[in-house]
């Protein structure tokens, strides 16, 4: 892996799913981990927000000598200030999480950055296999544990899935000693977000199984009858070869055998 590429990991403040406390965000931690394994201490870790936030020390404790913070209020939009930073500093790979754990958590930030910069975006990356000749081989994490190999040209933005290697443990002492380079951020307030009404999440109603039967006998049948697939094909008399071929054709048709 060539050390002369510039990798930037974007980090945000996470939220513990049970206690709701601020923490190192799960996917952002994985993005930092991936960056560290690629380029080591040459990794730039970038945060837009309050530089006094103690959670940033948890990222620094992963073995980072320094962190770059673009100082702005937490209610401000991060896209414009990040865009300015990425345009000014030479960057080859930007790593982020898929979705933030606070705020709107729409997952739109990497897409907006990619659209504005004109860079390709690879979603839900599990691994960056190699970077060579201005091209990178990445593995995408698909549902059901599947992987897809994609070649993408530098520079690009990658969102890191939960299938990527887990973030290493954070050490308190080195985290406290890390240096922060603080730059001035924008103060463009996110007006649309201010207008929205935000309330604690209500549990979603469970979907009821509504039986549209007219008579009591029909409802009884719907409640007691075993689910029967119906219309299935049954092969009895054929030879084992024909039976196996029929099963194999179905597997091929469903594309579970590739």
């Amino acid at each position: 892996m060539p050390p002369n590429i510039n990798v930037v990991s974007l980090v945000s403040i996470g939220r513990h799913p049970q206690s709701g406390r601020a923490r190192r965000a799960e996917q952002d931690g994985r993005a930092v981990e991936l960056g560290l394994t690629m380029v080591g201490e040459a990794l730039t870790v970038l945060h837009a927000g309050n530089p006094q936030n103690p959670v940033l020390r948890q990222y620094a404790g992963m073995g980072l000598p320094s962190l770059t913070v673009l100082d702005q209020a937490s209610s401000c939009d991060a896209v414009s200030v990040l865009l300015r930073y990425l345009r000014k500093n030479p960057t080859d790979i930007v790593l982020t999480g898929v979705r933030a754990e606070r705020g709107e958590s729409s997952g739109m930030l990497p897409y907006l950055l990619a659209e504005q910069l004109g860079w390709p975006l690879v979603p839900k990356v599990a691994e960056i296999v190699s970077v060579q000749d201005g091209k990178a081989d990445v593995l995408l994490a698909l549902p059901r544990g599947q992987r897809r190999s994609v070649q993408v040209s530098l520079p690009f933005i990658a969102t890191i899935d939960n299938a990527a290697p887990e973030a290493r443990q954070s050490a308190f002492g080195p985290g406290s000693r890390a240096l922060f380079s603080i730059q001035k951020g924008d103060n463009l307030a996110d007006d649309a977000f201010m207008e929205w009404k935000i309330s604690p999440a209500k549990p979603r109603p469970k979907r009821l199984k509504v039986v549209k039967a007219k008579t009591a006998a029909d409802r009884m049948k719907a409640a007691t009858a075993k689910p029967v697939g119906g219309g299935g094909k049954i092969m009895k008399q054929e030879s084992p070869e024909e039976k196996a071929q029929a099963i194999f054709d179905l597997l091929l048709e469903e594309k579970v055998i590739r």
Binding site: V228, G229, G232, I234, P240, K243, A244, F248
Partner: peptide, 23 residues
């Protein structure tokens, strides 16, 4: 067999052997 979309009435050994061969 009632639930299945394709049901094969046979001993598993012969069919599995054929399937392995095909795959």
């Amino acid at each position: 067999v009632k639930r299945a979309d394709l049901a094969v009435i046979a001993d598993s050994d012969a069919v599995l052997a054929e399937l392995t061969k095909l795959a």
